[in-house]
Write a protein that binds this DNA or RNA. Structure first.
Lengths: 203, 203
DNA sequence: CGTGCCATGTAAAGCGTTACATGATTCA
DNA sequence: TGAATCATGTAACGCTTTACATGGCACG
């Protein structure tokens, strides 16, 4: 249920807003550690309101659609604080690119290298955005406590993206330097066709 | 549908095996970039067999339950190769710990620091395991092409875990050094109670 | 005699994405 | 006139987790 807590955190730290605004916050700043689509956000907000963790008020607007502004309640704040205290596990990683790397001998070198280059550029672009945000924020030592915490989330994003870029570079160099051997992408059939179960009888 | 391709890759690279064996492979080596539970694996394998991407054979065993050993087919191999060529997006990140960090001013410093320390140790432990595996594998330059690709997946895992450890250390130092200010965890109510929508009328 | 490994499954619930849908305003 | 932004929603589908279920063997 961490989406709920992501929403609560945002309402707490960046103030009350509508589902639509939350969506934009996710696109912007939260995106480096959480993502959510709009049906998910609207649905979750309604369920949070039912629980009494947030409170919604309709804001009538002129020249644009009305909006429903949510703010975190005391109960919601208490819930969030309690949740922070419960030890959590790291996210389970599901990374397509590693599957592609593992089975990369199936395709020509250039295909794999192109995929790596594409991903490198993607992470590089995110990295630039984060660098800019960190610049705007200023030195971590000149922050308030909450500012320091905000800095740390951006810093995590920066490290994450930089690490991806560095690995992609490493991978591209190493792959380029390693010759494809006999168990290449057109001969793999030979090695897997022969089933060799260690024990037991084939039926 | 990348679980399907993760299973195909494993059958291709590490050879034919049962659902149960795949589960263990996931726990072991694949875990650093993909995770799957056993209902998921068994179900996916049946669906892959229906598609003709894998082929199952029952192996009768003595002293232990029979097992169903799956091997990748030519169609499956072709499908996997085709999939590698399709550009993919980075995984969407969903990281509890960053939400906790962002809203960390809600709890006492020690609570947050304890959570960070816990996570640091977890990543450190995974890092040690990966280091060992990399040692056993040997130098990346002495590998076959497939060996190089395997190395790169482990290397990614190593970098990932090391980066987490480094960030946790950074975070703990910085948090310890920053005094909690007035907007502390017991006074937050004051700042959020007052709704301030920029435009429009409250109803 | 209890725990853990081997080996596979079902069923329900929760979480997440994608596509479809609306309707006004603003800007090029 | 067409596209983008504002603002919210439904419906269908797929992926993932968790709990429940079975049953023999080996080891301490």
């Amino acid at each position: 249920m961490a989406l709920a807590h992501a929403l609560l955190s945002s309402l707490l730290v960046d103030g009350a807003c509508s589902g639509y605004d939350l969506l934009k916050r996710f696109d912007d700043c939260i995106s480096c550690f959480w993502l959510a689509s709009h049906p998910q956000i609207y649905k979750e907000l309604r369920s949070l309101e039912q629980k009494g963790w947030v409170q919604g008020e309709t804001v009538i607007q002129v020249g644009r659609p009305n909006k429903h502004v949510y703010s975190i309640t005391d109960t919601g704040t208490a819930e969030l604080a309690a949740w922070i205290g419960i030890p959590s596990q790291p996210t389970t990683i599901r990374e397509d690119l590693m599957i592609k790397t593992l089975a990369g001998h199936l395709v020509p070198k250039d295909t794999l290298l192109a995929e790596l280059a594409q991903r490198r550029d993607l992470h590089q672009a995110k990295l630039e955005i984060l660098k800019e945000k960190l610049m705007l924020l200023g030195a971590p030592t000149s922050q308030s406590y909450a500012g320091t915490l905000h800095y740390l989330t951006l810093r995590r994003g920066q490290r994450y993206e930089a690490d991806w870029v560095a690995w992609c570079d490493e991978a591209m160099v190493l792959i380029a330097a390693t010759p494809m051997d006999k168990i290449g992408f057109n001969e793999i059939g030979l090695t897997t066709a022969s089933l060799t179960p260690e024990a037991g009888v084939l039926v």
